[in-house]
Amino acid sequence: MQYVAVFITVVLWFGIVISPTLIGAILGVLLGQGSGFIELGVTLGASVGFIVGISWSEKIRNTTGLINFWSSLVSARDSKN
């Protein structure tokens, strides 16, 4: 049963890390197109985004908790009955 808990934690952790990585890669494409270095822009942008994502995910894991963070994102507070 512990394997399942570790797997869920890893998936939630990577879910937080991937969003700044994708944003950095997209910004790298946009900035790289102007200078002609798209590959370099994507690599640098994704690297910076990955580092930011790691620090953000670790901050969330140590303060709020990964499950509490994701449950607050997914919960539908504005639904009307």
Rank of each mutant, 00 (worst) to 15 (best):
V48P: 05
L66Y: 02
E39D: 13
G15I: 07
K59Q: 09
A46G: 14
P20I: 00
N81D: 10
I60S: 02
I54D: 09
G41C: 01
I51H: 01
T63H: 04
R61I: 00
T9C: 04
S79N: 08
F14Y: 07
W56G: 07
V17R: 01
G34P: 01
V17W: 05
G28L: 08
I51Y: 03
V11G: 01
F14H: 05
S19C: 02
L44M: 15
V48E: 04
I16G: 00
L44N: 09
F7R: 09
A46Y: 01
L27A: 14
A5I: 05
S72I: 04
Q33K: 07
F37K: 13
V10R: 03
W13Q: 00
L66Q: 12
F50Y: 10
V42R: 00
V74Y: 05
S71M: 13
G36L: 12
V74E: 06
S57N: 04
S71D: 13
Y3H: 11
V10N: 05
K80V: 12
T64Q: 15
I26D: 02
L27V: 11
A25K: 04
L30S: 04
Q33C: 06
E58W: 07
G36C: 10
S47V: 08
F14E: 05
L73R: 14
T21A: 13
V6I: 11
V4E: 15
V48F: 10
S79M: 13
N68S: 15
I60Y: 02
I67D: 12
L22W: 01
I54L: 15
F7Q: 11
V52I: 15
P20D: 08
V29T: 11
T21R: 07
F14M: 14
W13H: 02
F50R: 05
W70A: 15
K80L: 12
G49C: 02
T63K: 12
D78K: 15
G41I: 05
L31Y: 06
Y3A: 13
G45R: 01
V4C: 07
V4R: 13
T64S: 13
L44Y: 09
N81V: 07
S55R: 10
F14G: 11
E39Y: 05
T63D: 15
S19R: 02
V74K: 09
G28A: 12
N68L: 08
G65W: 01
S19F: 03
W56C: 08
K80Y: 06
G45M: 13
F7Y: 06
L66M: 15
F14V: 12
G49T: 00
V11C: 09
I16N: 03
I60D: 02
Y3N: 15
W56N: 09
I54T: 09
A76M: 10
S47K: 03
S57T: 09
G41P: 00
I38K: 14
E39W: 07
N62L: 10
F69M: 11
I51R: 02
R77L: 07
F69D: 15
L30F: 04
R61L: 13
P20H: 02
G24P: 08
F7G: 07
A5P: 00
T9Q: 14
L30C: 06
L66S: 00
I54P: 06
I8M: 14
V74H: 03
V29E: 08
E58T: 08
S35L: 09
T21Y: 03
A5S: 11
S55N: 07
G32F: 01
L66A: 05
V10D: 03
I51A: 14
F7M: 14
K59E: 10
D78A: 13
A5Y: 04
R61G: 07
I51N: 02
I26M: 13
F37V: 06
